[in-house]
Deep mutational scan, measured.
Amino acid sequence: ITGDVSAANKDAIRKQMDAAASKGDVETYRKLKAKLKGIR
């Protein structure tokens, strides 16, 4: 179950990262990237 949750989280975070990148929001992008590392 835990694996599914983190996989879903990663997917959601990647989508947020894409949105931040397209807006040029480097700050948010970095925060999300750090979150991704924390999940692993």
Rank of each mutant, 00 (worst) to 15 (best):
I1R: 08
I1H: 12
I1T: 08
I1A: 09
I1C: 15
I1L: 09
I1F: 11
I1W: 12
I1K: 11
T2K: 11
T2M: 13
T2H: 11
T2I: 10
T2S: 12
G3V: 12
G3A: 10
G3I: 11
G3R: 10
G3N: 11
G3T: 09
D4G: 09
D4T: 09
D4A: 11
D4Q: 12
V5D: 08
V5Y: 10
V5G: 10
V5E: 07
V5W: 09
V5F: 11
V5M: 12
S6F: 05
S6H: 11
S6R: 13
S6Y: 04
S6D: 11
S6M: 09
S6E: 10
A7S: 10
A7M: 12
A7I: 12
A7T: 08
A7N: 07
A7F: 09
A8M: 12
A8W: 04
A8H: 13
A8T: 09
A8F: 09
A8I: 11
A8Y: 05
N9P: 05
N9K: 13
N9S: 12
N9I: 15
K10M: 14
K10T: 11
K10P: 09
K10L: 15
K10E: 14
K10V: 15
K10R: 14
K10S: 08
D11H: 08
D11P: 04
D11E: 12
D11A: 13
D11G: 06
A12P: 04
A12R: 07
A12I: 09
A12Q: 10
A12D: 13
A12Y: 09
A12C: 15
I13A: 01
I13K: 01
I13N: 03
I13Q: 02
R14E: 05
R14S: 03
R14P: 02
R14F: 05
R14N: 02
R14H: 07
R14W: 04
R14A: 04
R14Y: 07
K15N: 04
K15R: 11
K15W: 03
K15T: 05
K15H: 07
Q16G: 05
Q16W: 06
Q16V: 03
Q16R: 05
Q16C: 15
Q16P: 01
Q16T: 02
Q16A: 14
Q16E: 08
M17R: 01
M17G: 01
D18M: 15
D18V: 14
D18C: 15
D18W: 14
D18L: 15
D18H: 13
D18Y: 14
D18K: 14
D18R: 15
A19R: 06
A19N: 05
A19K: 08
A19L: 13
A19Q: 07
A19Y: 07
A19F: 08
A20H: 01
A20V: 01
A20N: 01
A20I: 01
A20G: 01
A20P: 00
A20K: 01
A21N: 04
A21V: 06
A21H: 06
A21M: 14
S22D: 06
S22M: 12
S22Q: 13
S22W: 03
S22K: 14
K23V: 11
K23W: 03
K23D: 05
K23S: 07
K23R: 13
K23F: 04
K23L: 07
K23M: 09
K23I: 14
G24H: 04
G24E: 02
G24A: 03
D25E: 01
D25W: 03
D25K: 00
D25P: 00
D25G: 00
D25M: 01
D25N: 00
D25T: 00
D25C: 12
D25L: 02
D25V: 00
V26C: 15
V26Y: 15
V26T: 12
V26G: 04
V26N: 09
V26E: 13
V26S: 07
E27I: 05
E27F: 00
E27M: 02
E27A: 05
E27G: 01
E27V: 04
T28D: 11
T28W: 12
T28N: 06
T28V: 04
T28L: 14
Y29E: 13
Y29T: 09
Y29G: 08
Y29L: 14
Y29N: 12
Y29R: 06
Y29K: 12
Y29A: 09
Y29F: 05
R30N: 14
R30E: 15
R30D: 15
R30F: 06
R30Q: 13
R30A: 05
R30K: 09
K31R: 07
L32N: 03
L32T: 02
L32E: 02
L32S: 02
L32W: 03
L32F: 01
L32Q: 01
L32P: 00
L32K: 02
K33F: 05
K33P: 00
K33W: 06
K33E: 15
A34G: 03
A34W: 01
A34I: 06
A34R: 08
A34H: 06
A34E: 12
A34M: 06
A34P: 00
A34N: 07
A34F: 00
K35D: 02
K35S: 07
K35G: 04
K35A: 08
L36Q: 02
L36A: 02
L36P: 00
L36G: 01
L36R: 02
L36H: 03
L36C: 12
K37F: 01
K37P: 03
K37S: 11
K37Y: 03
G38K: 14
G38N: 10
G38E: 14
G38M: 07
G38T: 12
G38R: 11
I39A: 07
I39R: 06
I39M: 13
I39P: 05
I39F: 08
R40D: 14
R40K: 11
R40T: 14
R40Y: 12
